[in-house]
Write a protein that binds this DNA or RNA. Structure first.
Length: 861
RNA sequence: GCGAGAGUGGCGGAAUUGGUAGACGCGCCAGAUUUAGGAUCUGGUACCUUUACCGGUGUGGGGGUUCGAGUCCCCCCUCUCGUACCA
């Protein structure tokens, strides 16, 4: 029995590829290009997990395939290496983050090379390298110049545990995304990027992208464009007006009260003396609530009357002004006109506090709900009466503009991007403060490198670690010679990943972030693969920077990533769990409602399926059957190193692609890895027969017709499936070929074997290179021509077809290929079948439907 | 609530424009080989009925269109992901 020695073969070819720089990107611009990009990893201390090789194998298969199809392929990798874990480790141990980062990068690089990915290793980028972040800073200066980066004192998400401010996107349920620590709101001086200036373009350009619809939709929701109007309400005895944003100007006659957010700047101005105490109390309570608490308590509406009234401009009626935390300070103008008749939230509030409700849209007769949000004719609305929503809106907008009390307006959920962090391990801002004003560091002085510091910890007050480096902070303005202070905040981790795909194009270029001549050739990225967790943040930020660079003339495309695919998460192995309470096994439904439950893991042999649930074998006690997310605490993490040691990199690659469609969430199965490993062994034995060690099984015979048919079916299927990223079925086609070829007995003709090796090579490149070598070639197969199938070989002598009577299959017939279009012949053949006769006898023929090569359906009565 | 996606054997999953449901792999069963186990090889494996043939049922549930529906249309159920008072 001969087994192929995966570890020996894989090490050999990995060394060969590195030494010969097999995958160095050619710069021959005559050839068509293909830029295929992986989301670069954060090099964490725990190394690769099995999720990484999933997307990386998919892109590697396509990269290898495209090279063989004659494309110039750009397939790079790098390191998103700034970030919190290395810094937290530094705080704990005093180890400089650079040391940790270098160590982790080395490990990641080795692991990626161990999996045989065909990256061009001469194009590695590292966001923490000053030669890289020089250009991150350079891009920041472009933003600064254009007024797209500004300083602002604003309430921010301050996380005391992490000692830093977080972007809204990094706060989940009131806790930090990293670590899950509490987050409070607190005003601080911050750098902010004006992404809102690009909101419309970010929205519109989504339409032409070949991205998953769900991702585009998420970005649209995040940008949250809504069209409506702003309306000014006057407050008697005050000069100030209260401006509100509404998407329903048509309902203005139904505005029976107003609500300001507790943080609104006019609250203190308008509140009457009698209400001051109550308002103050409410504001304090709201201020102390975290976002999480606001959400939890949101089931019940709360609010306090300010004692003041506003004038509804359409009818000059006085309406009371309240404050309530269901109105958000940071959306629209932080104030609303409340129309309970047409808004569910306002209805709920009005009902609770006994405020008047006026309907302004006629609900249908059978309507028995509360607020009516549907369309209908306007009522109680003077000059709008009878108009449906769309017309009523435009008429009201005209009225508002004519009377100078409002205007059409567009609002976005998207807010400007909070861009500074009080951390050490990030890009320093290329900014100095002179006379208290921010000023750009001249381009020739870039990069502004990180200073050495004693401690990596931020101070309690929020002073960043860089502030300790006095000699670094205190500098002079090169222009005026005045004293100047360096900015001590650093950029967030997103900065480096906003443009790394450009640096790969010309990693050594020193005239700008990217060599424009090369950029024109390589951009846009043809295929970008990475996790859906980056659907909004990274992908929106990168698009924003790209558009700014486009406006600066640095890049030639409006969008960076033409096609995007998300790989699905890989879960742990399927787990079966029974529950025990007080020594008794109870069903999984009961277990939900009890405390003190003991979980008992079961093997597959101990359970069986009953109906649509799993039960313990021979009982009615249902158990849980579920694959969980991999996590250290659950102990179900699969380490790619172990898989490679046991089965080899080719098996890991093959298995991850064979599990199912790339985009799908799917559970791991070690048995499944063994399955594809067996396939590779069977493929190997096609070349080196059983019995005698390494007896070469390849002959120089002419391939037979049958052999060519089997081979060309594989070529066709594998080619089409790679093009459509259906790797699981491509591998199944390779398996079918091997299963067939194993029955050939006499050995495999060389011409057939060679083609098979080429087909296998994108999936399992190490074993393929070894077989190619043993077939007598001294060069890598990486640039061999991809096989092309020949339609003639696919034809067979006869076609198996089903014959149906009234749509049910009653017989199978074999029709000679040259008779396939002869309907009469086929019907004649079918009617000779005994079973068909049985069904036809004594009936009347209604019709005969014949789809050549597919089916014959005889309809009888 | 809202938005998006998905429900097919014991499991992961296949199935061109509607045309033989369950490819391929795992698991399981039987056999071969082996002192035994493992590994490997061969055959079988949706369910019911049957020695076998024949037959019946079957793609979450219910209707519909069609000669023919996993696929198209309508209603309902379940699950996953995202989102959450955005005026």
């Amino acid at each position: 029995m001969s087994f192929y020695n995966s570890s020996k073969i894989e090490k050999k070819w990995q060394a060969y590829w590195l030494e010969n720089k097999t995958f160095k990107t050619a710069i021959d611009q005559e050839k068509p290009k293909y830029y295929i990009l992986d989301m670069f990893p954060y090099p964490s201390g725990s190394g690769l997990h099995v999720g990484h090789p999933e997307g990386y194998t998919a892109t590697d298969i396509i990269a290898r395939y495209k090279r063989m199809k004659g494309f110039n392929v750009l397939h790079p990798i790098g390191w998103d290496a700034f970030g919190l874990p290395a810094e937290q480790y530094a705080v704990k141990t005093g180890t400089h983050p650079r040391i940790t980062t270098e160590r982790n990068i080395k490990r990641f690089r080795e692991q990626l090379q161990m999996l045989g990915f065909s990256y061009d290793w001469d194009r590695e980028v590292d966001t923490t390298d000053p030669d890289y972040y020089k250009w991150t800073q350079w891009i920041f200066l472009r933003l600064f110049e254009r007024g797209l980066a500004y300083e602002d004192e604003q309430p921010v998400n301050w996380c005391p545990e992490l000692g830093t401010v977080l972007a809204n996107e990094e706060v989940i349920d009131g806790k930090s995304e990293v670590g899950g620590y509490p987050v409070i709101r607190r005003p601080m001086r911050q750098w902010v990027l004006k992404i809102t200036a690009y909101a419309d373009r970010l929205l519109e350009d989504l339409d032409d992208l070949e991205w998953p619809e769900s991702t585009k939709e998420m970005q649209r929701n995040w940008i949250g464009k809504s069209i409506g109007a702003e309306v000014d309400f006057t407050v008697p005895d005050h000069d100030e007006k209260i401006r509100v944003f509404t998407t329903r100007p048509d309902t203005l006659f139904g505005a029976t009260y107003m609500v300001l957010s507790p943080e609104h700047h006019l609250v203190d101005v308008i509140t009457t003396d009698e209400q001051k105490a109550a308002i103050l109390k409410y504001k304090e309570a709201a201020g102390q609530k975290s976002d999480l608490e606001r959400q939890e308590l949101s089931k019940e509406k709360t609010g306090v009357f300010t004692g003041a009234y506003a004038i509804n401009p359409v009818n000059n009626k006085e309406i009371p002004i309240w404050i309530a935390d269901y109105v958000l300070a940071h959306y629209g103008t932080g104030a609303i006109m409340a129309v309970p008749g047409e808004d569910e939230r306002d209805w709920e509030f009005a009902e609770k506090f006994g405020l008047p409700i006026i309907r302004t849209v006629q609900p249908p007769d059978n309507f028995d709900g509360k607020a009516f949000t549907g369309d209908g004719p306007s009522i109680n609305s003077d000059f709008l009466n009878g108009l449906f929503i769309t017309d009523a809106k435009s008429k009201m907008n005209e009225w508002l503009e004519e009377n100078g009390v409002g205007n059409r307006s567009v609002n976005y959920k998207l807010r400007d991007w909070l861009f500074s962090r009080q951390r050490y391990w990030g890009e320093p801002f290329p900014i100095i403060h002179v006379d208290g004003k921010p000023k750009a560091v001249p381009e020739k002085d870039l990069p502004v490198t990180l200073p050495e510091v004693e401690k990596f910890q931020p101070t309690k007050s929020g002073e960043p670690p860089l502030a300790q480096a006095k000699s670094w902070v205190e500098t002079t303005d090169p222009e005026t010679g005045k004293k100047a202070l360096r900015e001590t905040n650093t950029m967030p981790q997103w900065a480096g990943s906003c443009w790394y795909y450009l640096r790969y194009i010309s990693p050594e270029f020193d005239g700008g972030p990217v060599d424009q001549e090369q950029e024109k050739y390589w951009m846009p990225v043809d295929l970008y693969v990475g996790g859906s967790e980056h659907s909004v943040l990274h992908l929106l930020y990168a698009r924003f920077w790209h558009k700014v660079l486009y406006d600066c003339g640095v890049v030639s495309t409006r969008e960076p990533f033409k096609k995007l695919v998300h790989q699905g998460m890989i879960l742990g192995e399927m787990e079966y769990t029974a529950y025990e309470l007080d020594g008794k096994i109870i069903s999984s439904e009961e277990a939900l409602e009890n405390n003190g439950i003991k979980k008992i893991p079961l093997s597959e042999r101990e359970i069986e399926k009953k109906g649509d649930r799993f039960v313990m074998k021979g009982t009615e006690i249902s158990v849980d059957a579920k694959a969980h997310k991999m996590s250290k605490s659950r102990g179900n993490v699969i380490n790619p190193d172990d898989v490679v040691n046991n089965y080899g990199a080719d098996s890991l690659r093959l298995y991850e692609m064979f599990m199912g469609p790339l985009e799908q969430v799917k559970p791991w199965s070690t048995k499944g890895v063994e399955g594809v490993n067996r396939f590779l062994n069977r493929a190997w034995r096609l070349f080196f027969g059983e019995g005698e060690l390494e007896k070469f099984n390849i002959n120089n015979d002419e391939p037979t017709k049958d052999q060519l048919k089997v081979l060309h079916e594989a070529i066709k299927k594998v080619t089409e499936d790679i093009e459509n990223m259906r790797f699981n079925t491509a591998i199944s086609a390779l398996m079918i070929f091997v299963n067939e070829a194993n029955n050939w007995g006499e050995g495999v003709p060389k011409a057939v074997a060679e083609t098979f090796v080429l087909l296998l090579s994108p999936f399992a490149p190490h074993i393929a290179e070894e077989l190619w070598d043993r077939l007598g070639y001294s060069n890598t197969l990486a640039y061999e021509m991809w096989p092309v199938y020949n339609e003639d070989y696919l034809k067979s002598e006869s076609v198996e077809m089903a014959v149906q009577i009234n749509g049910k299959v009653r017989a199978n017939i074999s029709v000679p290929s040259d008779k396939i279009t002869d309907k009469e012949f086929v019907i004649g053949l079918a009617k000779q079948q005994k079973n068909i006769q049985r069904y036809i006898d004594g009936t009347t023929l209604i019709k005969e439907i014949y789809v050549p090569g597919r089916i014959l359906n005889i309809v009888v009565k």
